[in-house]
Design a protein around this nucleic acid. Sequence first.
DNA 1: CTTAATTGTTAAGCAAGCTTAACTTTACCA
DNA 2: TGGTAAAGTTAAGCTTGCTTAACAATTAAG
Lengths: 221, 221
Amino acid sequence: MSTISKENYLKAIFCHISEMENNASTSRIANHLSISSSAISDMAKKLSKEGLVKYEKYKGIMLTPHGEKAALKVIRRHRLWELFLMNVLGLDWSEVHDEAEKLEHYSSEFLIDRIDEYLGHPDFDPHGHPIPKKNGSIPEIPNVILLAEAETNNKYELIRVNDKESELINFLKKVGLKLNSKLEIVDKLDYDNSISVMFNKKNITLSKKVTDNLFVRLIEE
Amino acid sequence: MSTISKENYLKAIFCHISEMENNASTSRIANHLSISSSAISDMAKKLSKEGLVKYEKYKGIMLTPHGEKAALKVIRRHRLWELFLMNVLGLDWSEVHDEAEKLEHYSSEFLIDRIDEYLGHPDFDPHGHPIPKKNGSIPEIPNVILLAEAETNNKYELIRVNDKESELINFLKKVGLKLNSKLEIVDKLDYDNSISVMFNKKNITLSKKVTDNLFVRLIEE
DNA sequence: CTTAATTGTTAAGCAAGCTTAACTTTACCA
DNA sequence: TGGTAAAGTTAAGCTTGCTTAACAATTAAG
């Protein structure tokens, strides 16, 4: 049976699988969920018994097709709520994540479909993340790269922001960066891996910590 | 600290206090929450320690002013969600209760205030129940009585429906009764305490079970 | 005013989901 | 290749919120 806790595990595992290789390590998930790693081992066994996860001791955790489906459902709920709270209730970019993190576990599929419908079956949430469709498919944007990997003198469009840390969102608000902002890479500084960008006719420097959490798309060479 | 479970206890206690006398009995609450009565005794002690409830063994449970405030907050969340789901997302009269029952525990005060604002600070939910204000006050309708206590030959307006049992709502939908429907009492049948009413130029008979859960206001003698 | 029925309480125990502490496996580096 | 640090696992124990079973108080009825 699926509980709130299990939904969060599946979501966390999904994130770490998609970013890295095909399996998620205990400690990464523990860190992500702010939970001891022994709890992860425990839960891995339970999820494995339920067929949501492939788990071998000391070998990491992998989602089964069944588990991936379940994870995508939760992510779908989360991202639809985020967009809904922002578009309809006027919540702020930095406020929606935490609210959605709770609501995602307590909305019936029926309600979620109504929200989806109300929003016109959107493809992306307010942070630029794709919203999984009811059938499990994931909308994609071609040629997305990390800002950290962008090249000097090229122009890019900001299309995705990691929403895990609300501090980042606040930082972006302060700087004035938004989704779809255009920026040009002026310089990459080897010393601290920071990047100097031209944005809105101003020159700002973004640290590695920032550029590792922003995704862009090339718009002009 | 307030948990989901405690919120539900406070809500349940509040309901049974307002309908009956000044204190709620263990078994009524147990019944309302579908939980064993030993669990109620247990929780009564905990809530008492937190100052939310006045509890003396074998003497029933009473909300403290602090506890009542907490209960009203939960009820406010519930009723605002109900109205929001119905007005904005188009959910049905019979669908909103169960969804709201979950969402009420996972919405920040901030979010609730946004919903309240969006709806224009409404006074009543879709079932005609008053929505407690942010300051704890409760909108009132004068001269509300149970349909079971209505008098023959008078005309009444249906203004409140108990939403605890979704079967009742489905029954009303089938019959065609809605909030603000006008009805005239044709006869009260002593044998089974049912009531015969004229509504929409049709004559229907409502059982005691139904009339005990509908509230009306006299509109014409 | 006593007694049976009803109602309420206590005690013991269970499941979920965590923790910390002790232990095991793996991976890496000299 | 062997030894150690890092990563992962197991075991024991805690809290919350429930259960059932046994026991206690209250109430209602003759």
